[in-house]
Nucleic acid binder design. Structure first.
Lengths: 159, 159
DNA sequence: CCTCCTCTCGTAATAATTACGATTTAGTAA
DNA sequence: TTACTAAATCGTAATTATTACGAGAGGAGG
């Protein structure tokens, strides 16, 4: 299957998702996805805007950002790297990794020898030389989980 | 060794680094590092500013941001998550990971079964439930490496 | 074709981070 | 200690990515 075909398949699948979920399958959305699906280089929003504009000259920044968020929410595309808006810092200089709560942003350190010395796949050695590993486990922390339970379980306790 | 002692050790080490590298060991820098080293919660710049202000009321935002960058450059602290300023997107929905060039920002995809199904350390299970793994290998890509070679090797070629 | 509701456009607002010019301070050596 | 100088800080303004908003356009179903 050629790249062009792959792209069209992804686009078609997205159009389907739209119909099923009552979301409008607009020209702009289609072109944004088409652009992204046909690219290997993980472009940023501005780059995508520039490229899509060649085909849809009047498209706006807002639309691009909104669409990218939409596609991300539907699981059609992914955001690379940290999803947080503000930088967070860490004074722990020992080699370690992080657990991040996607609900409240809590970050915990942990140690894993195995993750430190991950064997580098050949694929990667061909891209360049690896100098560091960044591992982030993502999930829901204890506190948020308990909070969620309580909220669900609202069945008659007094305020 | 108590936490307080650890913190002071880190601070002392930093003051040493300053002297050796001709960087000034200011009160503000010391307090920022002291705050960060004594914290387990990976605070953001604003939080650090607020806390340090209790002890150094006139400290400015600029100083905090500048100092954090300095400490990061010296390897005294680390930034959690992505270091990039703009979001990057990825339409590859297959389970995969990324290689990122810290020089030019190039991003490449790769696949690793081993990394996908990594056993979650007990430490982490105690923090919460893990729902996803994000792995990023960082280094220098082929292209940047070649460029660096050429630049180094400037020994007599004409412009 | 018509209506409704969602989506888009253009631009303004927001929020994190960085830059700037005047002033202060650490480091150093007399 | 004092004096000197480069570097750092302060307060604020500028910059940059991203999000919000109001008016109008367009897709989907009747």
């Amino acid at each position: 299957m050629t790249l062009r075909e792959k792209v069209e398949k992804r686009v078609a699948a997205f159009l389907d998702t739209c119909r099923r979920q009552g979301v409008k399958a607009t020209h702009q959305r289609t072109e944004i996805l088409r652009e992204l699906a046909g690219s290997e280089e993980h472009p940023d929003a501005e780059t995508i805007l520039g490229r899509v504009r060649r085909r849809v000259p009047a498209i706006s920044v807002d639309t691009v950002y909104r669409t990218l968020r939409l596609l991300e929410d539907k699981g059609v595309i992914a955001r690379v790297g940290s999803m947080r808006d503000r930088a967070r810092f860490d004074a722990n200089t020992d080699r370690h990794h992080h657990f991040v709560c996607t609900e409240c942003g809590m970050i915990g350190d942990f140690y894993s020898d195995a993750m430190d010395r991950f064997p580098v796949p050949r694929e990667v050695s061909e891209m360049g030389s690896v100098e560091g590993v960044y591992v982030e486990l993502r999930g829901i922390c204890r506190k948020c989980k308990q909070k969620a339970m309580k909220t669900e379980g609202r069945t008659g306790e007094q305020p």
